[in-house]
Design a binder for these strands. Structure first.
Length: 469
RNA sequence: GCUGUGUUCGUCUAGUGGCCUAGGACAUCGGGUUUUCAGCCCGAGAAUCAGGGGUUCGACUCCCCUACACAGCACCA
């Protein structure tokens, strides 16, 4: 039956970030990827809706940043506040009248009511309930005692609208990823639907918008499971068909708590800034709670969306392991052609463009590719020696001889340089490792002959002379 | 505290009753190649499948209990 229904349905998924942070959280990007993949797999549509109903925590520029970052990762929505679409507006602050209308409908039907209680009173009853070890919830005082609400509203009294949760009901959530989950309505609070500033709460807005925007699958993180019964109640009260729910895992810190900015970099653009490739990040994310049917580890998001099945998502909260991400990123970098790498490097760091315009450094790119974990590494690989190592007098003497040998070299090309280095290494009984340190100030990096050829005879000499001064 | 969700190598995972003396990947540690470092190739260690009860000829896989972890319990989303 489910299958039949699905065939006739237009699949529509969404993510609903709220612009209260610097950028989109990597966990939300993960949810976005799943939603996107699921929509693509089923020829559906993926929507971005901005949930900006919390006016106090609103962060300036956050919405733009979120939208931009998602795009930078290559997850392109079919409808969004920027792109628009059939169900616009896609910003909840522009839909206030809609929520009000449905809130009033709920009141008329007896599924919601006005509440004039002060925060102080709510706090008090909550304290009492905690003391008595009861479930903390509103006591329906205003539903029972207040009849003159229109007068009080006229008098400009502050009020909220609350959901009237019926007692003694069992609410069943059928989750694609987790199966059947049961809740008792007696444990549910009379959730606020419309706040005293006239804005809806998440619970109200999400149901109204998902229904109006014809969202067929609500795919979100585990943290929403406990509020889903409230949403179901609102759907029912309005006489609306339920969407299909799927609650994926929450990404975790190494200590298993919910991924947070105190313990991990969480803003998605941080990974881009650090030189991770968007495709690599997405590929890594895809492997969280899911595995490729053919056990592949490296695959494009298009391949991902082709084989993706919602029910294959595992409900266990995976730990975000930046080590594996680094490995994956280096795999992606290695798979790039020199030309592609060059473009990406210049895009990543504009200051590299003059340096990379020189045709001679094709070889540099080839060699660097195998040694880079992130785009950021390139600059480190080609940078001049840093003065960290303290040379002994004996070593300085050897370097003086080396300088003479280098001055004597006629043709500055890598074969000749290598010859010289090999000979010198044997003659002076200096290990290649030591030679590397002398010439680059580093114990590791790009192969010496190519590196020195690229750097040039003059700079190589002046670098060495710096040591013996 | 209450409610809910989970529990296979350090980490991500494969596994849907016999193919499992549990497979792969990252990480770690050896060895080889080598002009440093990488890369590449070869190899090793690493999970008594959270624990305990069932069901079954047979359980990592099904059921129950316990433990532990995580999430939610806001006029935040």
């Amino acid at each position: 039956m489910q299958v039949e229904m699905d065939l006739n349905k237009n699949f529509r998924t969404r993510i609903a970030p709220s612009p209260t942070g610097e950028d989109i959280h990597i966990g939300n990007l993960y949810t976005a990827l799943i939603n996107w993949a699921f929509a693509k797999k089923n020829n559906g549509k993926f929507i971005i809706r901005i949930e900006d109903t919390d006016r106090e925590r609103l962060v300036n520029g956050s919405e733009e940043r979120i939208l931009e970052t998602i795009q930078n990762f290559g997850i392109i929505p079919d409808e969004s506040p920027k792109i628009g679409g059939k169900y616009a507006p896609y910003r909840q602050s522009e839909r206030i009248e809609i929520y009000k209308k449905y809130a009033e409908e709920l009141i008329e039907k007896g599924h919601a009511y006005y509440c004039f209680c002060t925060k102080e009173r709510i706090d008090e009853i909550r304290k009492e309930q905690v003391l008595k070890k009861e479930v903390s919830r509103y006591d329906k005082y205003c539903l029972i005692n207040i009849n003159d609400f229109s007068k009080r509203i006229e008098k400009n009294e502050k009020y909220v609208i609350r959901l009237n949760v019926a007692s003694g009901r069992e609410i069943i959530l059928n989750d694609v990823i987790r199966g059947e989950i049961k809740f008792q309505s007696d444990l549910l609070d009379d959730q606020i639907l419309i706040k005293s500033d006239g804005y809806p709460t998440y619970h109200m807005a999400v149901v109204i918008d998902d229904h109006l925007m014809k969202i067929s699958h609500v795919i979100r993180a585990e943290e929403w499971i406990s509020s889903t019964p409230k949403h179901i109640l609102i759907y029912e009260a309005l006489g609306w068909e339920l969407p299909i729910f799927a609650h994926g895992p929450i990404l975790r810190n190494p200590d298993r708590s919910k991924l947070s900015k105190r313990k991990n970099p969480v803003w998605s653009s941080w990974y881009l800034d650090e030189g991770y490739l968007p495709e690599a990040v997405l590929n890594y994310l895809a492997l969280m709670g899911w595995s490729h049917p053919e056990d592949k580890e490296i695959f494009s998001i298009d391949e991902y969306s082709n084989v993706f099945e919602l029910k294959d998502i595992k409900p266990v909260g995976p730990i975000f392991d930046i080590n594996k991400l680094k490995w994956m990123n280096s795999e992606y970098i290695r798979a790039l052609s020199e030309d592609e790498l060059k473009k990406k490097l210049i895009h990543y760091d504009k200051s590299l463009s003059t340096l990379l315009d020189d045709k001679n450094n094709l070889i540099l790119l080839t060699l660097a590719k195998l040694r880079m974990r992130t785009l950021k590494d390139f600059k480190i690989l080609i940078s001049d020696p840093q003065e960290i190592y303290i040379y002994s007098e004996e070593e300085k003497k050897i370097i003086e001889i080396l300088i003479d040998k280098i001055i004597a070299i006629k043709v500055w090309e890598k074969e000749k340089i290598l010859d010289l280095l090999k000979k010198f290494s044997i003659e002076q009984n200096v290990s290649m490792k030591m030679m590397y340190l002398f010439l680059t100030g580093n114990s590791k990096g790009l192969p010496l002959p190519e590196m020195l050829e690229w750097r040039g005879k003059d700079i190589t000499l002046s670098n060495l002379k710096k040591i013996i001064i």
